[in-house]
Design a protein around this nucleic acid. Sequence first.
RNA 1: GGUCCCGUAGCUCAACUGGAUAGAGCACCUGCCUUCUAAGCAGGGGGUUGCAGGUUCGAGUCCUGCCGGGAUCACCA
Length: 586
Amino acid sequence: MNIFHHFEDIVRGALGSLQTDGTLSADTDFARVTVEPPRDTSHGDISTNAAMVLAKPAGMKPRDLADKISTALEATGNFSAVSVAGPGFINMTLQPAFWQTRVADILGAGPAYGASEIGKGEKVNVEYVSANPTGPMHVGHTRGAVFGDALANLLEKAGFDVGREYYINDAGGQIGVLAESAFLRYREALGEDIGDIPEGLYPGDYLKPVGKALADAHGDKLLNMEADAREEIVRLAAVDAMMDLIREDLALLGIEHDVFFSERALHQSGKVETALQRLDGMGLIYEGVLDPPKGKKLDDWEATPQTLFRSTNFGDDFDRALKKSNGSWTYFAPDIAYHLDKYQRGYTHLIDVWGADHGGYIKRMNSAVQAITNGGAALDVKICQLVRLMRDGEPIKMSKRSGNFVTLREVVEEVGRDAVRFMMLYRKNDAPLDFDFAKVTEQSKDNAVFYVQYAHARIHSVLRNAKNDEGLKGVDLSDAALVGADLTCLVDEAELGLIKQMLQFPRVIEAAAEAHEPHRVAFYLFELASLFHSLWNKGKDQPDLRFILAEQRDVTLARLALIRATGYVIASGLGVLGVEPLEEMR
RNA sequence: GGUCCCGUAGCUCAACUGGAUAGAGCACCUGCCUUCUAAGCAGGGGGUUGCAGGUUCGAGUCCUGCCGGGAUCACCA
């Protein structure tokens, strides 16, 4: 479906013929040859850098080689014009009929348009959100959640077999604090006056129902129970309740994971030991003492021997601790086991989506994955930079300590799922993002969500009008009928421009999937919407360019086919972003 | 101090992984509403891509060194 692959083949074929006649040697490497649409449309439809890349190995001047390649390309009969330009670019131009008939392809594919096979069904694991189950999600989690979800959609669209996963940190010290906090609420539910929640515990009201449920289920039996057994019960109840809260929050964004992977279960299954033994067997674990961190004073620093992983063998800055000074595992150890587990479940591509504050963790995780899978799995950690919430141009202050943070729910309820999702994706993941409440609900071109959805709504508005048009009474306007329209009626530059932009979509999907960058889809959609709005308005100045011309049925059908196809592309792209393509906005 | 990310128009950001004359939106000017949604469109001004070197046919993009901003820095997750 990506037409550029087709022309890549044609260019390779032409280069092959130059190998046959001896212009290029038989072992010429074509890896650096690209076949792309030129940035500037006045340079034609398709462009290749072949002559510039191959000039040196061929011992020729780029322009001379370009002439030869150009001749070979002309001989294929695929192009209406082939020319050499600039330092040696070869620009190819196609007959309008080629573009026009592609509209039928898009209509045929419908909302599935843009799907690609480059993933070859390979298994990709996307781990995202993975927020600690200690409370509802706040706005800080939102970006990573949306990003991971869209990336998973994108990879699916590109032909990968995607697993969406959430790692539950239900084994650490924070969970102990959570259990303690929940136990307090339990005592409260039994009628005890617990006063203020002590510093360091979770003060949120969301733990009250947990206490209530524990009281309902156990009466006062927990009060006199042995501490370990009690904590076990409270802990499980609290984590379950928190995960329910988190799942509800995620549902507000339309996010659903395939697997919720428990760190606790990992410990209990003995997989942490197994994984570490595996590293030990490779000679990558030793007992040693780390140097104190430089340039930063630590009062309680002690030079204690620790169990360390030789991450420096894999490019890390220093070796990393696997056990704490009290002998228990660090966070790192089970994480290694977890990533090994993913690999053993068949995932050769691993993607982790983290917040910016975990950036310092990337090298060691990469090292660990490289080591423990013996290079069998590739890990790509995507960092999402911070989101700055703005209201009326002023940043909203949040402090964790006071519990004064904006929750995910509050944001979604105020501006809507679509706006949240789109805006979180309308920025590169590693760039900070300002999220302005006023801006994301504004109905103007300054708000990309609106602008794209508006284009889609306008398309459906025209389709509705066509259906109700007296002059088109009884005319079949179904997709099946539109596919058969005389598409050669689409001759205006703006119409052809729109078609060409639509044909970029499969390329955008593939490039975005390979780069793990869903934001490219969002930017693409903005451009596509812009071309559509432009065409729409052209019909104001030139009535003969309007979509519905009752007295010219052929033209009307062709144009309805064009905008129906445009609607599909927008819907397809928005589908990747997880944003609804609205059919009406009034 | 170490590591990672960022630095592009007055502001907010893109730039198809090294391509041709660096593009959008906002803001600022000039036009366009008896007609498919003006919630829009057309046009204009605005740039030493932080600085200095290097790699090559070609650099915003890759390498080195500075400058400025952010994140992080045994054992927390």
